[in-house]
Amino acid sequence: MLMVSELKKYYKIESNIIKAVDGITYRFENGKFYAITGRSGSGKSTFLSLLGGLINADSGKIEFNGKEITGLNDNKLSEYRNKSIGIVFQNYCLEPTYTCIENVLLPTYPAGTGKAKRNEAAGKILEYVGMSERNNQQVKSLSGGEKQRIALARALINNPDIILADEPTGNLDSENGKIVMSLLRKIADDGKTVIMVTHNQEDALKADAVLRFVDGRIDGDYPND
């Protein structure tokens, strides 16, 4: 369970203060699929970065399974990113010159997973995302949809509880977008919390609940039927 309370992140540009995230309080239930929508600049990515421990909040609290994330030291935060969450970016953030399996294995090294175990896990996860035939293909030769599936596999390899995805279908055509969406759905159905930022209404409807962001606040959450 992920608890966010009174979370704030302001940016100061010259003399303007941009309230990117302006006092968000929310409770993400385990195993549910959340979609975050909202206009550009409404603070969605900032919020996701806060959840992922990529940036520090100005104030407020994030609690993960009863443990406070805000205020963790650097190493603990790295461990949290490594083991408890998986992050998926719009632009994949894969290492193009590495093969699929090498990319997927990257998070297992700091986790200290043994060789046999991590190779087995990588094999399974690549099968899970439907990329098992591409194990040894360099990522740069993949299509966007395939890249995003590899990115999902990498996010999943250490078996985290939460998947954070910032516009994972933003760079994809509708065909590939659908594949990725159904994967995210499957991940949520398999018991992980998925929090996804999207501009796509159709995609948002696949989630269990939709949070609408306006000016760094949650304007409302609408459970999908």
Binding site: S78, N82, A111
Partner: peptide, 16 residues
């Protein structure tokens, strides 16, 4: 930068 940023995002520590 993006490579090292990615490594950090997926949990590599300063040490690594």
């Amino acid at each position: 930068y993006s490579f090292y940023g990615m490594l950090k995002a997926i949990g590599y520590r300063k040490k690594h």
